[in-house]
């Protein structure tokens, strides 16, 4: 029985902002199905009441005084932006014009 369908793979691809050809969807469905099946061996373990580990160190808030420190000059910040205009990054239209 397959654990994940091609439809699900397409949906996950959309969430992950990836696009695939039909052929790639087939390959990924098979491979993800195998990997998920492999991960399901964790179900052999009873983890009732076990605290999840999110981080190995004891986490605490790191505070500092709120003082102004030098920030990046605009041209540095934009140095690697592939498309820019008038000192800003440029992206495709995100809202319809009236």
């Amino acid at each position: 029985m397959s654990r994940i369908s091609e439809e699900q793979v397409k949906y996950v691809a959309h969430l992950a902002r990836l696009s695939f050809s039909e052929e790639e969807i087939k390959t990924f469905t098979t491979q993800l199905d195998e990997i998920i099946g492999f991960a399901e061996q964790l179900n052999e373990l009873d983890t009732e009441g076990i605290e999840p580990t999110t981080h190995v160190l004891d986490m605490y808030n790191v505070m500092r005084d709120d003082v102004v420190e030098p920030s990046l000059p605009r041209e540095e910040a934009l140095k690697n932006a592939p498309v820019q205009e008038d000192g800003q990054v440029k992206v495709p239209l995100i809202m319809e014009a009236d």
Partner: peptide, 24 residues
Amino acid sequence: MLGTFALSSGYYDAYYKKAQQVRT
């Protein structure tokens, strides 16, 4: 893809949280 799947609604507890518990 695997990570997005494991974190997606409906699968989070079964995969991600389970794995965090086994990590413990």
